[in-house]
């Protein structure tokens, strides 16, 4: 297959296949940077204390997974934090909700806080969640995140390639490409070379 056709296929396939994820990242990015368009609201919080009997053989990470499973917390697990007073804080995040479980030092009770997030924080959650941690949902999410990220690069490179090998290239196109590349280089140099 000739290179140009291959690039056209890459442009089309990455565009159609990753459309939803890429659009989601750019829309949620807009929500993130335009705070004045999308103001925050304080989350609705709900706290409860549960008695637990943690199996003795479990380590800190396994205990977090056990608590999440026992109380159906869901969400992507974040690294546990050991507090100075001996308690351990586990956080589980998913778009729309932030769940925190604090295990007492005696390991007999756990305080669970559920915070329901507003539109802005939910969108930011979609934007920020990444990595390969947690159950199959989050592993799949991590894969789609990586594919969408690589797709952005492929989409841009293949688009420029298709334009560069087209029969006609007007002056406006050249000006646009030169502006984009020149401005990016100028910004990098401006940041690196000025005080």
């Amino acid at each position: 297959m000739e290179m140009k056709k291959l690039m056209q296929k890459i442009h089309l396939y990455t565009g159609l296949g990753l459309l939803t994820f890429v659009l989601m990242y750019f829309f949620t990015g807009l929500v993130l940077i335009k705070h004045d368009w999308f103001p925050d609201k304080d989350p609705d919080k709900n706290t409860r204390v549960e008695q637990v009997r943690i199996p003795a053989a479990l380590d800190v990470d396994e205990t977090g997974a056990w608590i999440a499973d026992r109380f159906s917390l869901g969400g992507q697990p974040q690294p546990p934090q050991k507090l100075d007073d001996g308690r351990v804080r586990y956080r589980f995040f998913r778009p729309g909700a932030n769940l925190t479980a604090v295990l007492n030092a005696d390991k007999r009770s756990v305080q669970i806080e559920t915070a329901k997030l507003d539109f802005r924080r939910t969108m930011i959650g979609y934007h920020r969640i990444h990595g390969y941690r947690g159950n199959i949902v989050w592993l799949l999410w991590g894969l789609m995140y990586d594919l969408a990220s690589a797709g952005c690069i492929l989409f841009a490179v293949s688009g420029v390639w298709i334009w560069a090998t087209a029969r006609e290239r007007d002056r406006v196109s050249w000006a646009m490409l030169a502006t984009g590349v020149g401005f990016t280089l100028a910004m990098v140099l401006y940041l690196m070379l000025t005080k």
Binding site: A150, C152, I153, L154, A156, V157, L177, G180, T184
Partner: peptide, 13 residues
């Protein structure tokens, strides 16, 4: 697309 291609590459990377 040509104007924004550098940003898309930076965003993806």
């Amino acid at each position: 697309g040509l104007l924004c291609a550098p940003y898309m590459i930076i965003f993806g990377f």
